[in-house]
Design a protein around this nucleic acid. Structure first.
Lengths: 186, 186
DNA sequence: TGTTAGTTAGTGATCGGTCACAAACATACT
DNA sequence: AGTATGTTTGTGACCGATCACTAACTAACA
C-alpha cells in the first residue's frame, strides 16, 4: 500500500498499474492478486488506510490543545502534516480511480472532508462563544474559509515545484486568517 | 474540443479516448488524426483554448469595475463563471494528461494561476492604499486567501453532487471574507 | 501433507496510431 | 465546356503495446 501511494505521487494515481506496483515491490505482477482479489480492492485498502490516518491525526490534534484556537491550529497543522506525508492525497481526490471506478470511495473521502469541516466549525463556535473570535459571522462560513485555505495552499504546493515547506507556509497563512477572524477587542 | 471538455467532465479527463471523442462527434476514430497529429496535440489545443478563455474573462472583469473592491469581486465572479462553464477544469488541473504526459501544459496552467494571483494582489494593494482594506497584512497573503477561497469552494462543488450554485455560494463567501479584510473604520 | 506465496505463461479487451483507399471539391489546362 | 490533377476529409481494417486478470505449476514451511 505504501508502494501504491509512492507511485501515485510519482507517476500519478491513474498511471499506477499492477505491473508497476509489483515490480517496485520486487515480485511479479501476478503475485499481487494473491493478496488482493482485484485492483479496485487494492485501492480500497489504500484509501481506507489514508482515511484512518486522517481520522487519528484529527483525534490527536483535538486532544492536545486546551483552547479552541490552539485546537484549531493543531487541526490545520495535522492536515498539512498528513498531506506532506502523503503527497499523492490531493491528486488522489481527483483521480479517476476514486471518482469514476470506485463510487463508494468517493463518498468516503467526501464524508471525511465534511467531518473535518464539522470539527473546525465546532471549535470556531466555541471560540466565538468565548469571545475570542468575532461572532458576527456563521461558524460554518469561517470553517469553509479555513478548509479552503488548506486546500488552496496544498494545491499551490502540489501543482508547483513543492519548493516551500507546506506546513510552515500553511500555518503562517492560518495565523493571518486567524487574525482576521479574531474579535476586534482582543 | 468542446466534445473533449464535455467528455472530460462526464467520464474523467483520463478516460477521454480518441474513440470516445470521435464517436460522440459522429466520425470514426481515425478521422481525428486528420486534424490533430497526436492525442497530446488535441489536449494541447483544448488547454490553450481554456487558458485563453480564462485570460479574456479576467480582462473583461477588470475593465468593468471602477473601484478595487468591485474589480476584485468581478475577478472572483469571472473565475467561478469559467469553472461553471467548464466543470472539467478542476479535475483537469490534476489529470495525468496535464501533469505527466504534457509537462509544458502544466507550466502553462501554473502560470495562469500565478497571473490570477498577481491580479488579485494588485487590486488588494490598491484597495489598501485607498484605506478600504486593512493595511496590516501583506497583499500577497490576502490574495492567497482569496484564490484559496475559489479553489476550496470549487473543490467542494466538484467533489460533491454539484447541488449548489457555484457562483452564488462563492460570491457569498467572498463577501464574508471581504468583510474580514475590510478596514475596521469603514 | 496441506497451506501459503510465489512463479511463468498466457488471455481478452482496449488504447493510440497507421495504412490504403474513396468521395467531394477546387484548380488548371486544352 | 470538358478533362486531368491535387487537396481535403472521411472510412474501415489493422497493428503493436499495455492493461487487469487467470490458470497451471512449484518451492518453502508447519
Amino acid at each position: 500500500m505504501a508502494t501504491v501511494l509512492d507511485l501515485a505521487d510519482r507517476i500519478g494515481p491513474d498511471r499506477v498499474t499492477t505491473g508497476a506496483v509489483a515490480s517496485q515491490i520486487g515480485v511479479t505482477q501476478a503475485a499481487l492478486f494473491r493478496h488482493f482479489p482485484t485492483k479496485a480492492a487494492l485501492w480500497q485498502a489504500v484509501a481506507e488506510h489514508v482515511a484512518e490516518g486522517l481520522a487519528t491525526a484529527w483525534e490527536n490534534a483535538l486532544s492536545l490543545g486546551d483552547t479552541p484556537i490552539v485546537r484549531l491550529r493543531a487541526l490545520i497543522s495535522a492536515q498539512f502534516a498528513q498531506i506532506d506525508a502523503t503527497p499523492a492525497l490531493p491528486m488522489l481526490l481527483f483521480s479517476r480511480e476514486l471518482n469514476v471506478t470506485n463510487t463508494e470511495l468517493r463518498a468516503t473521502f467526501h464524508g471525511r472532508l465534511t467531518t473535518f469541516h464539522g470539527l473546525l466549525a465546532t471549535e470556531i463556535r466555541t471560540a466565538q462563544e468565548a469571545g475570542v473570535l468575532r461572532g458576527d459571522m456563521p461558524a460554518n462560513d469561517a470553517a469553509v474559509l479555513l478548509t479552503s485555505l488548506v486546500q488552496g495552499v496544498a494545491i499551490r504546493w502540489a501543482l508547483g515545484a513543492r519548493d516551500f515547506d507546506l506546513r510552515a507556509e500553511g500555518l503562517r497563512l492560518f495565523d493571518v486568517q486567524c487574525r482576521l477572524l479574531a474579535a476586534e477587542g482582543k
